[in-house]
Design a protein around this nucleic acid. Structure first.
Length: 424
RNA sequence: GGGCAAGUAGCCAAGUGGCCAACGGCAACAGACUGUAAAUCUGUCCUCUUCGGAGUUCGGUGGUUCGAAUCCAUCCUUGCCCA
């Protein structure tokens, strides 16, 4: 199966420029995707573009990951209804480093490969260009009419928020990236999320007019959830790839909790499993949905891809301990490393015993309970249990006798959120 | 520089002198039902609370009034139009 057919089956192609498939089957093609340094870590929304690059490399082509040191300074208007705030330079550089380090893990950069992955920063070629040069060499080739016709621009012109010249220029900046890579790195392909289509075509247009060349592109659909809510968010915010921002345990749980409908879609997009295997698994899942085979496999594949096999095994072990049978027993019989190593939410309680539950929960140093009032409400609604015993009376007194192994207390908020609390 | 419009809780959005901690929707959280799903139903959803209440909010500041998210002045921000 060729790359495009493969990606199509996986639901990873939204728009594709005519001739792209032919180009890819003709020769080893260099393709790139840009990553915006809006934060110091990528989140799972960036996973799809990353996977596109990985697929590209697997198919024998050369992937280039571009980090947007320059574009990050401008701000992409795509998908934004309001003018963006600019990042200061220090933050930007910090973010660039974080993003670069993460991207390194997913692609093969070994120089011996003919199609070794490469990382570039568009600031490197933008820093030497003056404004006048840019408007003469680049701006001259693209009409304002053309730029204004782009969706991202038109929406803002029609909307009530307006748009600054800076953001209006964004597509030219990104377009020039493509042109530069075409000329200097022989890149003939750009990929990205479907919201990037407008920016990408500005690039191919620029290549055609300025270099007389032909370049290609395709985009992937934005990942959505079946219920229409935003993908990649949990009660704690974004799901990050950085294990210090989203622990591997929480990362795994995010995927494990996906709905059946989403899991069927996502397993195609986010894993490298073959078509037959996936279809068999989906069939199996439908006959016994309560086994959650699909979610488990999905969570496994992605967690291994992002955090590695070792972490995954540790997570599964912990998950089984907390969801399978007897969490109390699990805490009692596991050593600290097994218990906390995968990043189950935990914190430390430092005040003196005994205290009433409400104070205890409010001060246990986790984000589960924001205040005494919050803790009390949760108790009144029957959503809190300590050491597997549901707390119904907000006046319950917690003291040292609750400690497991003389240092832990298991707090549960709802069904899914466990907190292991160490007492110091 | 001139004219016009707008700024309400995480987001969208009603309210245009007291009945306003502020309609409604989304998102989120808990409960029931389940499969660590979905859908549905119920509750919560500014902060604190001895659950009786208390405190702080409607871009900022100052004012009018017994009483202001609502009226006035001024400043800030944003959009549209004109120069």
């Amino acid at each position: 199966m060729n790359l495009i057919a493969e990606l199509q089956w996986r639901g990873m192609i939204q728009d594709i420029m005519p001739g792209t498939e032919e180009q890819l089957s003709k020769e080893m093609t260099t393709g790139y995707i840009g990553f915006d340094p809006t934060a110091d870590s990528l989140h799972i929304g960036s996973l799809v573009p990353i996977l596109l690059l990985v697929h590209l490399q697997k198919a024998g082509h050369k992937p280039v990951a571009l980090v947007g040191g320059a574009t990050g300074m401008v701000g992409d208007p795509s998908g934004k209804s309001e003018e963006r705030n600019l990042l200061d330079e220090a933050t930007l550089n910090h973010n660039l480093e974080g993003v670069k380090n993460q991207l390194k893990k997913f692609l093969d950069f070994s120089p011996s490969l003919p199609n070794a992955a490469e990382m570039v920063n568009n600031y490197d070629w933008f820093k030497g260009i003056t404004f006048l040069q840019f408007i003469r060499d680049v701006g001259k080739h693209i009409t304002v009419n053309y730029m204004s016709a782009k969706d991202s621009v038109r929406k803002r012109l029609e909307g009530e928020n307006g748009m600054s010249f800076t953001e209006f220029t964004y597509q030219l900046v990104q377009g020039y990236d493509f042109y530069w890579l075409y000329v200097n790195k022989n890149a003939k392909l750009q990929m990205g999320g479907s919201d990037q289509w407008g920016n990408i075509t500005t690039g191919t247009e620029l290549i055609r007019r300025k270099a007389g060349g032909e370049a290609f592109a395709f985009t992937c659909p934005l990942v959505t959830k079946a219920d229409g809510t935003k993908f990649g968010k949990t009660e704690k915010g974004n799901v990050w790839l950085d294990p210090t921002k989203t622990t591997p345990y929480e990362f795994y749980q995010f995927w494990l909790n996906s709905t059946d409908a989403d899991a069927e879609k996502w397993i195609k997009t986010f894993t490298f499993m073959g078509q037959e295997e996936i279809e068999a698994l989906i069939g199996q899942h439908r006959t016994a949905p309560d086994q959650r085979l699909l979610q488990k496999r999905l969570a496994k594949e992605i967690t291994v891809f992002v955090h590695g096999t070792e972490q995954y095994e540790q997570i599964v072990n912990t998950s089984k301990g907390f969801y399978g049978g007897d969490p109390i027993n699990f805490i009692n019989t596991s050593d600290d490393n097994v218990l906390l190593g995968s990043g189950i939410p935990s914190s430390t309680f430092t005040s003196a015993w005994p205290v009433d539950v409400v104070t205890f929960l409010a001060e246990c140093g986790s984000s589960f309970f924001s205040s005494k009032g919050d803790a009390r409400k949760m108790i009144q609604q029957g959503g809190v249990s300590i050491n597997e015993i549901k707390i119904t009376d907000p006046k319950t007194i917690i003291d040292a006798s609750y400690l497991l192994k003389e240092k832990y207390i298991l707090i549960k908020k709802g069904k899914n959120f466990h907190l292991v609390l160490a007492h110091s």
